[in-house]
Write a protein that binds this DNA or RNA. Structure first.
Length: 733
DNA sequence: GTAGGGTTAG
C-alpha cells in the first residue's frame, strides 16, 4: 500500500498552470492518488496537497477529484465537498464531467457543464460530448441528451465517431430504438463500436432478432467482431432461448480467435443457463480460470429459475459474498415460479441481515409476491418501507405497486399511485389499464388507453392484451373488435396468440360464437391452446355443442393433460343432456389418471395467510367455520335462496357431486373464516386459484347484503367486488 | 494528459 511519507512539496515560484503537467504528473503525491484504496487515504492525500499547494494546480486537483469520483470505494460525496478547483481549463472540466457521469449521481455532470459554460470561455469539445451523453444515458434523460445532440451538431462535431457512437448507445438506453438506428445508419465510417452499440441497443430494447440480423450484416460488410460484439450476440441468444444458435456462437468465438475474457465467459454462462443447458454452464463454470460475482450470480440465478432450488441455495452459500443481486436472484426465482411464500421467507431473512439491503429489484419481487398472495397488509408495509427508506419510485416500482394494490383489491389506491407518479412509462400505463379491467371498469380502462395515446406513450403487446382483457370483462364487443383491428395498421403491434385469444373470448362470451370461429380460421398464426380454450369457454357458456367438440379436440391435441378441457366438454354434454358422453369422458379421465387442480382460497388476517381447500377441516377454527356456514345457509334459505346445482358441474370432480359439495367450496370456507375473525368494518379479501363457481358467486352477493360486508374475491381471471347484494362484474364473467 | 460499446437480479 502507498504511504504518505513523501517529502513535502515545494512549488515552483510561478503560479502553476497546465504547462507544468509533466512536472506534476511525475510527482510522487500524484502517483500516490492512484494507489489509494479508501476514502481515508484520499483524504490524507488531499490534506497533503493543500499543505503543499499542489491542490491549487488545476491538473493535480482534477486528478484527485477523478480518483475520488471513479474509485471503487465510491467517495464521490467527498469529491463533491472538495471546493472548486481554481481556474479550471477545458481539460479539467472534461475530467470532472467524466468523473461524475459514471458516479451515482450523473446529473452532477450537467451542473458542471452549465458552470463550465458560464465560467470559462471554452466551448465544449469532442471529449466533452461523449461524457455528457454518457451521463444522459445513465439517467435515461432523453430530452437532455437530445439537446446535447443538437449542440454537438452546432459545434461541428455531428460526424465525430465518438459522439455518434455515444448517441447510438444513449438513444438505445432510453429505449428509443428508432432514434438509435437513425443515428447508426448515418454514420459513414462505422467502426466496430458503432456496430456493437447498435447490436446492444437492439438486445436491450427487446429485439434480439434485429440484433442477430445486424450481426450478420456486420459480417457481410467484413467488419471483424470483437469480444464485446459476441457478448451482445450471446445475450440475444439468451433472450431468444436459442441454445442451438448459442452453441454455434461459442464455436464461432473459438474459430475466429476472439479473446475470451471474464465478461465474455459470463455471457456464455448466462446463455447456457437461460437456454436451459445446466450441463454446458456447469462445465464452463468449472473450467473458468477466474470467476467474479457475475459468474456466481449467473449460476445461482440459472439453477433457481430452472427450479433447482437446492443447488441454487448451495451456490448462494458457497459464493464469496452474498450481495443484493444474489438475494434478488433467489427471491425472484421463487416469485416467478409461483412460489410467493418461499420468496417472502427469503425476503424476511434478508431483512435480518446487515451485509445486504433490499433495493428496487428486491421490492419489485416482494410486491409481486404480495400481489400473488393478495396479501394487502404486506404490500402496504412494503410501500411504507419504501417511503421510510426514501426510495424513489421508478417505473418498475410504480408498476409493481399499482399491480399489487389492484390485485389486492384496492383499486382506489392503485389509481392514487398512478396519478402521483412523476413519470409513467408504457408498463405503468398498462398495469393501470389491467387493474381497471380486472375490476370490471372496462370503460375507464379504455379511457385510460386513449389518454395514454394522447400522452404519446407507445402501446406494446402487453398493453393490447390488457385493453382487450378489459373489453372482455365488461362485454365491450365493438370497442374490442375496433382496437384489435387497429393494432397493426395504426400502432405497429402485430397481434399475437394472446390477442387472438382475447378477441375470441370477447366475441364468444357475448354470443358471437360464429364470428369467433371465423376469426380463428383467418388467423395468420397457428391457434394456440389459449385460443381454443377461449372458444371452448364460449361454447360452454352458450351450450354450443357444434364447435365445442372441435375446440376441445384441438385443445387436447396441444395440451393432452388439460383437465379443464375435459371438464368443460363434459359440462357441455351435461348441459345438453348427453349423459352417456358425460360418463364416457369421466371414465377417460379416471383411466388416464387426470386430476383436477384442487380449488384453494386464501385470506390474510392480521398478517397471517390462511389457506383453505375444498371441504377442508384442517384449520384450527374449523368447527367455528362450519357452524358459521350452517348459520349462513339457514339465513340465506330464509330469504329464499336455493343452491344452484348446475354449477356443480363447472369444475367439480364427480365424487364431489353430493348434497354438501357447494357449501364446502374453498371460497365459502375462506369467507366464513373472514366473517368470524375480522371486525365488521374490515372488508373480506379472498384469493382463489380457480374461477369462482356460480353458486359461490350468488352466495357472496347475498352475504354482502345480509351481513352488510364488503367482499373482494379474486379468482384466477378477475375481481369480484361484492357490496350490498351486487357484484362489480355485473354478473358478466 | 481526457473518449464511445459488454456480463447478474425486474
Amino acid at each position: 500500500m502507498a504511504t504518505l511519507s513523501t517529502p513535502t512539496l515545494s512549488l515552483p515560484p510561478a503560479s502553476p498552470t497546465v504547462n507544468n503537467d509533466r512536472y506534476f504528473a511525475n510527482h510522487p503525491t500524484l502517483l500516490v492518488i492512484n494507489e489509494c484504496i479508501s476514502t481515508k487515504c484520499l483524504k490524507q492525500v488531499h490534506a497533503q496537497m493543500l499543505r503543499s499547494g499542489l491542490f491549487f494546480d488545476p491538473f493535480s486537483a482534477s486528478k484527485l477529484i477523478t480518483a475520488c469520483a471513479l474509485s471503487q470505494f465510491s467517495s464521490i460525496d467527498y469529491a463533491r465537498q472538495i471546493p472548486q478547483i481554481p481556474q479550471p481549463n477545458l481539460y479539467t472540466w472534461n475530467i470532472l464531467i467524466r468523473a461524475h457521469a459514471s458516479s451515482r449521481d450523473p446529473s452532477q455532470s450537467f451542473i458542471l457543464f452549465l458552470r463550465m459554460l458560464h465560467e470559462c470561455e471554452h466551448f465544449p469539445d469532442k471529449f466533452t460530448f461523449p461524457f455528457l451523453i454518457k451521463a444522459a444515458s445513465e439517467l435515461q434523460a432523453l430530452r437532455v441528451g437530445r439537446v446535447f445532440h443538437g449542440m454537438a451538431i452546432k459545434a461541428s462535431l455531428g460526424s465525430d465517431i465518438f459522439v455518434l457512437n455515444s448517441l447510438v448507445h444513449f438513444y438505445g438506453s432510453c429505449g428509443d430504438l428508432d432514434l438509435a438506428y437513425g443515428v447508426f445508419v448515418k454514420i459513414l465510417q462505422k467502426d466496430v463500436v458503432s456496430w456493437n452499440s447498435m447490436i446492444t441497443a437492439f438486445v436491450q430494447g427487446g429485439c434480439p432478432e434485429e440484433a442477430l440480423a445486424l450481426f450478420r450484416t456486420m459480417e457481410k460488410e467484413d467488419v471483424k467482431p470483437n469480444d464485446v460484439t459476441m457478448v451482445g450476440v450471446l445475450s440475444a441468444c439468451s433472450k431468444k432461448l436459442d441454445l442451438g444458435f448459442g452453441r454455434w456462437v461459442c464455436g464461432y468465438i473459438e474459430r475466429n480467435d476472439i479473446s475470451v475474457n471474464l465478461t465474455l465467459s459470463n455471457a456464455m454462462l448466462d446463455m447456457y443457463m437461460k437456454c436451459g443447458s445446466i450441463e454446458d454452464a456447469k462445465s464452463l463454470f468449472d473450467k473458468m480460470p477466474e470467476r467474479d460475482i457475475f459468474s456466481w450470480t449467473t449460476m445461482l440465478d440459472g439453477y433457481a429459475k430452472l427450479g433447482e432450488y437446492e443447488e441454487a441455495r448451495h451456490i448462494f452459500y458457497k459464493m464469496p459474498r452474498q450481495d443484493i443481486a444474489a438475494w434478488n436472484a433467489l427471491i425472484s426465482a421463487y416469485e416467478q415460479n409461483g412460489k410467493p411464500k418461499e420468496a417472502l421467507a427469503i425476503f424476511r431473512e434478508l431483512q435480518l441481515r446487515k451485509d445486504a439491503k433490499p433495493d428496487e429489484v428486491t421490492l419489485v419481487c416482494a410486491l409481486s409476491a404480495s400481489a400473488q398472495l393478495g396479501d394487502m397488509d404486506l404490500g402496504r408495509w412494503i410501500h411504507m418501507y419504501m417511503k421510510k427508506q426514501g426510495i424513489k419510485l421508478n417505473c418498475h416500482l410504480t408498476t409493481s405497486l399499482i399491480d399489487m394494490y389492484a390485485k389486492c383489491g384496492d383499486l382506489e389506491k392503485a389509481l392514487e399511485v398512478f396519478h402521483s407518479a412523476e413519470r409513467n412509462d408504457v408498463f405503468v400505463w398498462s398495469a393501470m389499464i389491467a387493474g381497471l379491467g380486472m375490476h370490471g371498469c372496462g370503460g375507464a380502462a379504455l379511457d385510460l388507453f386513449w389518454k395514454m395515446l394522447e400522452a404519446k406513450v407507445k402501446p406494446n403487446a402487453v398493453t393490447f392484451t390488457n385493453v382487450l382483457c378489459a373489453c372482455s370483462h365488461t362485454g365491450l364487443v365493438d370497442e374490442g373488435r375496433a382496437i384489435f383491428d387497429q393494432m397493426e395498421p395504426v400502432h405497429g403491434v402485430v397481434p399475437g396468440d394472446k390477442h387472438y385469444a382475447c378477441l375470441v373470448d370477447i366475441l364468444g362470451r357475448s354470443g358471437l360464437v360464429g364470428e369467433a370461429v371465423e376469426l380463428i380460421k383467418r388467423m395468420p398464426i397457428l391457434p394456440t391452446a389459449s385460443v381454443w380454450g377461449a372458444l371452448l369457454g364460449a361454447c360452454r357458456l352458450h351450450g354450443n355443442l357444434e364447435f365445442a367438440e372441435h375446440a376441445c379436440s384441438r385443445l387436447l391435441e396441444l395440451e393432452p393433460r388439460n383437465h379443464g378441457a375435459y371438464v368443460l366438454l363434459s359440462n357441455i354434454y351435461a348441459k345438453t343432456g348427453s349423459w352417456d358422453r358425460v360418463s364416457g369422458i369421466r371414465k377417460l379421465m379416471r383411466d388416464s389418471g387426470l386430476k383436477k387442480e384442487p380449488g384453494c382460497s386464501s385470506i390474510a388476517v392480521n398478517g397471517i395467510v390462511h389457506e383453505f381447500l375444498a371441504g377442508d377441516n384442517s384449520h384450527p377454527l374449523s368447527r367455528e367455520i362450519y357452524s358459521k356456514l350452517d348459520e349462513i345457509a339457514a339465513t340465506l334459505k330464509s330469504i329464499g335462496y336455493v343452491p344452484n346445482k348446475s354449477h356443480l358441474l363447472q369444475l367439480v370432480e364427480e365424487e364431489d357431486i353430493q348434497e354438501h359439495a357447494l357449501s364446502l367450496h374453498s371460497e365459502k370456507l375462506a369467507i366464513a373464516f373472514g366473517l368470524i375473525s375480522m371486525v365488521p368494518s374490515q372488508p373480506i379479501r379472498v384469493v382463489k386459484n380457480l374461477r369462482v363457481c356460480g353458486d359461490c358467486h350468488t352466495v357472496a352477493k347475498l352475504i354482502s347484503r345480509v351481513y352488510n360486508r364488503e367482499i373482494f374475491l379474486r379468482d384466477c381471471y378477475r375481481f369480484h367486488h361484492f357490496r350490498g347484494g351486487h357484484c362489480s362484474c355485473m354478473d358478466y364473467w
